[in-house]
Design a protein around this nucleic acid. Structure first.
Lengths: 203, 203
DNA sequence: TTTCTTATCGACATTTTTGTCAGTAGCGCT
DNA sequence: AGCGCTACTGACAAAAATGTCGATAAGAAA
């Protein structure tokens, strides 16, 4: 006489699918609830699996954290590298900047960056320099501007994009303005500032 | 026959001193080790007191968090309000911006802000709007610029200051540049951009 | 000195979170 | 159908973190 536990039928995924499912849930938690909800039980529940299943695929909860960081970093890098800047007109530059801002906003890449910074894990971003170098060469090589000037400019753009991505919406709303106001203002100031910087270099 | 435990002599502080000591330790932990080290045992150890002592003064570990947030917020507000901008020349404006950047950098105010944002506690910053209003009125009332334009400008400045404060150093170093490079570049671009914005408004 | 208040502490209790393990069940293969 | 592999699970164990409590001692006041 066997006792029949009324459990749900199991969903059996490929290891890749299962890992992807768990990481997607973790990412949702990170961006919607904050890093402190990235606990074993929370992640497992969000993913709809048992705690032990998470550990089966990632070893420890820290393994989940690491894998999540790497996944999000890869996503972001891909997005940034995909930004088009074939010709450097005002219009195309504005578009590129807008895309950059959105890359740091969507998928909460800025939150990831802040998380890394606060947890002193920014060292994981080992390829930032390489990415910036690649972008400098591939997108700006047709300009006659020294590479380290381009890098300095990208430094400001990224810093501002991160600031806007992380704080823009909250700050805008705190001041009783539409949530995209910070982004818009940042874009304006950046465009004008960069134009002037360029003019100064030439003049 | 009494057993003499070899314990350190107790340090007895006033409640205010004790709270201050604990909060200072917590702040040190937050900025040097990250938010996840703001645990009861960590804070107590850093402050050199027993766990129970921390709870005696703050009730729960969350009480410590709250008190710390409030303390750091008050500090920051004080610093921002102290920024001088009597006359709006290029030089005085540059000084004011530099001071603003440093206010968000020192004492790790940007880390506090990121912590609040990530933990969805930004609502604690209830007086941001009031501070911005006050600054607008007291520091800019001599200008003939509409108040909400001033507010928009301050929005960009704060966003950028937060971005620089949180990510500036790390990003600069990742690109193989001196740690203050992001701040310097941000200042340049901001100054030029604001000047242009002003010119456009007038023209 | 003696008394009183209370900041402080160690020991313990409770709760939360992580990790282990042996057995179960889905699925492809023969 | 039967077999083998392994993703999956619940139950349990271990560790970590928070919080409670009675006793102690530092300092002020009588």
């Amino acid at each position: 006489m066997s006792i029949r536990k009324n459990t749900q039928p199991r969903i059996r995924r490929t290891p890749e699918e299962s890992r992807a499912n768990i990481l997607a849930s973790a990412e949702r938690l990170l961006t919607e609830q904050g890093p402190q909800t990235l606990r074993l039980a929370d992640v497992a529940k969000e993913a709809g699996v048992a705690n032990a299943t998470v550990l089966h695929h990632f070893g420890t909860i820290d393994g989940v954290h690491t894998a999540l960081m790497e996944r999000m970093i890869a996503e972001l890098v891909e997005k940034v590298m995909a930004i088009e800047l074939t010709e450097d007109t005002e219009v195309s530059r504005a578009q590129a900047l807008t895309t950059l801002f959105e890359a740091f906003e969507q998928k909460q890449a800025s939150k990831l960056a802040a998380w890394l910074e606060l947890t002193h894990q920014a060292g994981r971003l080992t390829n930032v320099r390489q990415v910036v170098r690649d972008v400098t060469r591939t997108k700006f090589h047709h300009q006659n501007v020294p590479e380290d000037v381009v890098e300095d400019v990208m430094l400001v753009c990224i810093t501002l994009a991160l600031g806007v991505g992380l704080f823009g919406q909250t700050l805008s709303e705190m001041l009783g303005k539409p949530p995209s106001r910070a982004k818009e203002m940042a874009l304006s100031v950046l465009m004008l500032g960069l134009r002037q910087l360029e003019a100064e270099r030439k003049g």
